[in-house]
Amino acid sequence: MTSTGVSASDSLPGPDGSKPEGDNASTGRLGDRIFGGTATFAGLSVIAIVVLIGAFLVVQALPALTSNNANFLTSRDWQTSDPMRFGVLELLWTTVSTSLVALIIAVPFSVAIALFLTQYAPAWLARPAAALVDLLAAVPSIVYGLWGSIIVAPKIVPLQNFLQDYLGWLPIFKPVAGISNGATIFFVGIVLAIMILPIITALSREVFAQTPAAHKDAATALGATKWEMIRTAVLPFGKPGVISAAMLGLGRALGETIAVLYIISTLPGGTAWTWSLFNGGSTFASKIAADAAELTPGKSTGAYIAAGLVLFVLTFIVNAIARVIIERRKAFTE
């Protein structure tokens, strides 16, 4: 972009032409200096915010972490009054397992819906149908929580029983006593799947729609059926986009708070460990929110801040991966 040179200036400037960035269009004028300075300051403050979030969480978690009598990463205890014994193992398991269940359900659905919206839906239906799916993203998460915990949870029990009866020999489908009415990791995963479905669908839709017509025509001209055309042209082209969309959806699921809090059944301390998805538990977010009313400035809050820090790091990594995949794809297609 730096040395576009002659050809760029003599050819038709397309709508995708380079932006006049870093140019001399702004001069030493006062107005330009103030305006450009404000814009730069705003951009820098976004960096500052993210850095400050990390810094404050680390600094405020440290006192609690240093007086912790348990291993922060491997302990299942959550005792925040002296003597402090707290660890995130169980929170981490519940957070990750609910989110993975969500992802496993949501990704195939989202890809199929995105393909429907871009390749199958008749022209008159495509736009309103896409808007309907987008509406799912507009539903507040507290409404998902109410609907899930009160309306759907009792109805999910037969499905859970079915899985327990036929697949109960798998550790993840083992029955767990004392968790009633679908207040389980499994069901939270289903609700989270519905919540992240519109996010993954929207982004997948975007990349599928960008499949070059030439790729599609080439496949069709070889006598491919529509499905074969999709498998050979659309899906390979959209794969990186779908993966990064899935990562963004995962990030959203990891941090979801109120829906999880309303649905899942918390476990009393000292409950035996199980890998079963039919167990209850707490995620990082639901744990912090559940005890929000009891937060007081002091060392005990540090334990929650430490938990929040782990969640922040998790989502940071997941979102960064999504970003890197998108960047690579851009570099590849441009």
Binding site: I49, L248, R252, F316
Partner: peptide, 12 residues
């Protein structure tokens, strides 16, 4: 950083 911020959970 805008992308990272968009992924920061509301509870964080």
């Amino acid at each position: 950083m805008v992308d990272i911020l968009s992924g920061v959970p509301s509870i964080v």
